[in-house]
Design a binder for these strands. Sequence first.
DNA 1: CGCTTTTGACCAGCGC
DNA 2: GCGCTGGTCAAAAGCG
Length: 152
Amino acid sequence: MEITQIASEDIDWVSLLAGSSIFGNQKSESFAADESSGGGKNGSTRHKRKVRRSKKAIPPKIAFHTKSPDDILDDGYRWRKYGQKAVKNTIHPRSYYRCSNHTCNVKKQVQRLSKDSSIVVTTYEGTHNHPCEMFMDSFTPLLRQLQFLSRI
DNA sequence: CGCTTTTGACCAGCGC
DNA sequence: GCGCTGGTCAAAAGCG
């Protein structure tokens, strides 16, 4: 996997360059999702929808252009797919993922370029407020060993 | 049995 | 105001 291009909007470049923005940083941005109490207008025949949109407090977005045969680039987090849409000017559909962690409201969109199918555009939105599971899994045995050795 | 994926419907923003 | 488009929801299906 190779990153060919990085685009961004409202991005904290320092945290990105420090490598902490994606791989489990602890500084929580905590963009508050306003639980607006206005709802309950749609009733009868429609399905109940609670679509809350916050135009203010736009979370930082980071877009990676990666060259990979897989749509999902494994960044160590577990993602749950919640939607897929066909977008204009692209024959490939766009996939929407959310972080599996309940307390973590990080989203990402995955889309291929119509020109070059080997290029995958991954757009991250928000920052993780929990450590990376994979990272922890692979390092826990090592950590235990270190603790054991330090006791000697 | 619990979590993930699929998929059609719903909703809001935007341009005309 | 209307239609198009992108983003999200949620029920059902799938899977380990």
